[in-house]
C-alpha cells in the first residue's frame, strides 16, 4: 500500500461533494483556521464528511474526531497522523 496524504484540497473536495458550500462562504479563501461551524457545516454535514473520508482512505475515524478538531487545519493534521500509522510497519 502506497503512502497517502490528505490535503486541504482533498477536504474541500469531499466537503463539496458531501455537503455543498454555504452561501457567502468561499472554500477557496483562507479557511484553514476557520471553525467548521462558522463555515456552515453542522454535525450532520461533518458526519457525512467523516464517512466519505473513511471510505476513500480506508480508515476508521473516532466518533469525536470533529469535536477534537474544529478547524480544517486541525482535521487535516489528524487524518494524516492516522494515515501515517496505517503505513507504519
Amino acid at each position: 500500500m502506497s503512502e497517502r496524504t490528505f490535503t486541504i484540497e482533498d477536504l474541500k473536495r469531499i466537503l463539496l461533494e458531501g455537503a455543498g458550500a454555504e452561501e457567502g462562504v468561499d472554500l477557496d479563501g483562507d479557511i484553514l483556521d476557520t471553525e467548521f461551524e462558522e463555515l456552515g457545516y453542522e454535525s450532520l454535514a461533518l458526519l457525512e464528511t467523516g464517512g466519505r473520508i473513511e471510505r476513500e482512505y480506508g480508515i476508521s475515524l473516532d466518533d469525536d474526531v470533529f469535536t477534537d478538531n474544529r478547524t480544517p487545519r486541525s482535521l487535516v493534521t489528524a487524518i494524516n497522523t492516522q494515515l501515517e500509522t496505517l503505513v507504519a510497519p
Partner: peptide, 8 residues
C-alpha cells in the same frame, strides 16, 4: 438553491 442544500 445553494449547493449546501442539494446533497440533503
Amino acid at each position: 438553491l445553494p449547493s449546501r442544500l442539494l446533497p440533503q
